[in-house]
Structures are given as structure tokens and as C-alpha cells.
């Protein structure tokens, strides 16, 4: 068992916790993935309802998915910044 008094707050401690934080930040990827999947599912429904509008639906879906990706990208930037610590 590790006693609290034995922990040394040196640079490797900081960088280890920063790596942990980078991993935790990437949990935000869940949200982006769910959003993108939701957009794709709705696009499939729309194509099923209106097959002739497939091109327009695909373009709109791609733009929407790229928007939904934003939160995941912010998490990625934060993770990169943390790794650089």
C-alpha cells in the first residue's frame, strides 16, 4: 500500500497525471461518435423516404457530421496540449 506521504510531487508525477488527464479528456469522443451516428441514421431514413434526393442528403449529412465532430476535436486539442506538459 502506498502512503500519501511517500508520493513525490516531482516532474514525472506531473507528466503522468497530464497523460491521465489527456486520456480522460478523450472520453468526449463518445459524444461526437454518438452524434455522427445519429446524423448518419437519420440520413439513411431520409434516403429511404426520398431516394431521389440522395445527393443533397449526403452533402447535408457530411456537413452536419463535420459540425458534430467539433466537440471531439476540441477534446483532441486539449489532449495534445496535456501531453505536451
Amino acid at each position: 500500500m502506498i502512503l500519501l506521504s511517500e508520493i513525490v510531487f516531482n516532474e514525472s508525477f506531473v507528466s503522468g497525471l497530464a497523460a491521465l488527464g489527456a486520456g480522460i479528456a478523450m472520453i468526449a469522443g463518445f459524444g461526437a461518435a454518438i452524434g455522427q451516428g445519429f446524423a448518419a441514421g437519420k440520413a439513411v431514413e431520409a434516403v429511404g423516404r426520398q431516394p431521389e434526393a440522395q445527393g443533397k442528403i449526403t452533402t447535408t449529412m457530411l456537413v452536419g457530421q463535420a459540425m458534430a465532430e467539433t466537440t471531439g476535436l476540441y477534446a483532441l486539442i486539449i489532449a495534445f496540449v496535456l501531453i505536451g506538459q
Binding site: A66, E69, T70, L73, Y74, L76, I77, F80
Partner: peptide, 16 residues
Amino acid sequence: FAMGLRLFGNLLSGSV
């Protein structure tokens, strides 16, 4: 600012 960061994150992830 968010628009610029979106571009940066996407391209950075690709190159990494």
C-alpha cells in the same frame, strides 16, 4: 475562433 480551431484539430489529428 471555433472555426479556426476546428480546422486545426482535424488537420493535426490527420497528420499525427
